[in-house]
Simulated scan of single mutants.
Amino acid sequence: MTRTSTHHRITVCTSCKHKGTDCRPGYELIQRLRLAIDMAGDTINDTFEISGIACMAGCDRPCTIAYHGTRKATYLFGDIDPDEDIADLVTFARQYADLDDGWCSSVDRPGKLRKTTLARVPAAITVMEDRQDVLQ
């Protein structure tokens, strides 16, 4: 597969806290991931935007992170540690960029991402119905 000009986004939860602490690792994860992707030296930094969002409802599995792409499945991962998982996140960014539909098996995902997937959401498809069909 070849890399396309598809726009990708990585979204990191900035509300997640380690249990029993006020530590919010999302901001650190964003900084480290941006730096790692910039240092990767290939085109992934041209197609990926990295941003934070206040909550992704993964509170029991901090820190949560999502990969989104145009016409691609979306992945939500939990239990991400900025100190340990950056290499796997960059590897998955490369892999995800190369997947036409974003779909991959858990065994194909790098390292810890094989077991920390919280959701894989199929690409959104807009369904159009003829108004006559709806009325009948």
Rank of each mutant, 00 (worst) to 15 (best):
P122G: 05
E28M: 05
I37A: 01
Y67P: 00
C63R: 02
I44L: 04
S15I: 03
D42G: 09
F92M: 11
H8L: 14
L33K: 02
G52T: 05
E129G: 10
A97F: 02
I125E: 15
D85N: 12
A93F: 06
T47S: 12
D79G: 12
D60V: 11
M39T: 10
E49A: 15
C16I: 07
E28G: 07
Q95H: 15
D79I: 02
V12A: 06
E49H: 10
I44A: 08
T70F: 08
G111M: 12
Q95R: 13
K72G: 00
V90R: 00
G69V: 05
G20I: 13
I37H: 01
Y75H: 11
K115P: 01
I10W: 07
G78M: 02
T4L: 06
Q31F: 04
E129H: 10
S15C: 12
K19T: 11
A36L: 06
G78W: 01
E28K: 06
C59L: 07
I44H: 07
D85E: 01
D22T: 09
D85C: 03
D85H: 04
R131M: 12
A93E: 09
R3V: 14
R94H: 15
S51D: 15
W103V: 13
Y27W: 05
C13V: 07
A57M: 12
C104N: 13
R71P: 00
H7Y: 07
D108P: 00
K112Q: 07
S51N: 13
L118E: 08
I125N: 11
V90A: 07
I80W: 00
G26V: 02
E84Q: 10
T6V: 12
T126Q: 14
D101T: 14
I53P: 00
P62F: 04
L135H: 05
F48C: 05
I125P: 00
G102E: 09
P62C: 05
D42K: 03
T74C: 07
R32V: 01
C63K: 00
V127K: 09
C59N: 08
T4D: 13
M1T: 14
T6K: 03
K19L: 10
G26T: 10
R34W: 04
K19P: 05
D100Y: 07
R131V: 15
V12F: 06
S106N: 10
T21R: 04
D83G: 11
A87R: 05
A97N: 11
T43Q: 14
G41V: 12
Q95D: 13
G41E: 08
A93R: 01
L113W: 07
